[in-house]
């Protein structure tokens, strides 16, 4: 299977001297196409820092990071400058609070991610509708996010994360705003989509109930990955 992400001894340190905080301590992680991994840990364990490093939002301090076989961080610096383009083309994001754009209707919220990578409007809309149908929210396509339930919004967010065909999906507490039942449904959906579409998915969560059936689970504490299963 093709490798989607590889972290080797990735480290992130905030501050220096007495105020130094090691937010991520020599993390090692590998993810392949179609795999779903969870990063588990309590608040302050370094989950979000790892997510921000993976999303090329925060620059690590040392180590190496490869995405889709391309080393994007190594030798103490970024290997490419257009990190936003990398995010746009190769990554999809799912947020704890879904983060749909409130002034766009549901269809446009999904279409925008496809349009950002240069897909024409018509084709983007077709892909978006297919995903919305698959996720059973197509009937809400012309509605605005405020009128949808939490579960529906999260399914729309999943559609947005997938519509442009990324190789990696980063999900930040995607079930935190949902009840247990809806949370499970969202997680099941992510697992199914990852396998069917060959996408690597990393889910950051503190809810151990949600990680059943994941390909790997990384436990974090104080910035370090303690073990993986």
């Amino acid at each position: 299977m093709t490798e989607v992400v590889r972290l080797e001894n990735l480290r992130k340190v905030y501050g220096s001297g007495e105020t130094e905080v090691v937010a991520l301590a020599d993390a090692n992680l590998t993810l392949h196409e179609g795999e779903v991994s969870a990063v588990l840990g309590p608040s302050g364990s370094g989950k979000t820092t790892m997510l921000m490093c993976l999303g090329c939002i925060t620059e690590p301090t040392s180590g190496t990071m490869s995405i889709g076989g391309e080393e994007v961080y190594g030798d103490g610096g970024w290997k490419r400058r257009d990190l936003r383009r990398l995010r746009r083309e190769k990554m999809g994001f799912i947020f704890q609070a879904h983060n749909l754009i409130p002034f766009l209707n549901i269809l446009d919220n999904v279409v925008i991610a496809a349009e950002l990578v240069g897909t024409p409007r018509k084709e983007s809309a077709k892909k978006a509708m297919e995903l919305l149908e698959y996720l059973e929210v197509a009937h809400r396509a012309d509605k605005f996010p405020a009128t949808l339930s939490g579960g529906e919004r999260q399914r729309v967010a999943i559609a947005r994360a997938l519509v442009h065909g990324p190789s990696l999906i980063l999900a930040d507490e995607p079930t935190a705003a949902l009840d247990t039942d809806r949370g499970r449904k969202v997680v099941t959906l992510l697992k199914d989509l990852a396998r069917k579409r060959g996408v690597g998915v990393i889910v950051v969560t503190h809810d151990v109930r949600m990680v059943e059936g994941f390909d790997s689970v990384y436990h974090m504490k104080d910035g370090a990955i303690l073990d993986s299963e």
């Binding site: 990398l86 995010r87 746009r88 990554m91 947020f95 409130p102 925008i112 991610a113 990578v117």
Partner: peptide, 18 residues
């Protein structure tokens, strides 16, 4: 008012010109 939406757009890769 929409600064978080702008942050979301940046996170999903929207270029500055957008």
């Amino acid at each position: 008012d929409k600064i978080r939406d702008i942050a979301t757009l940046k996170l999903i890769g929207a270029p500055d010109r957008t």
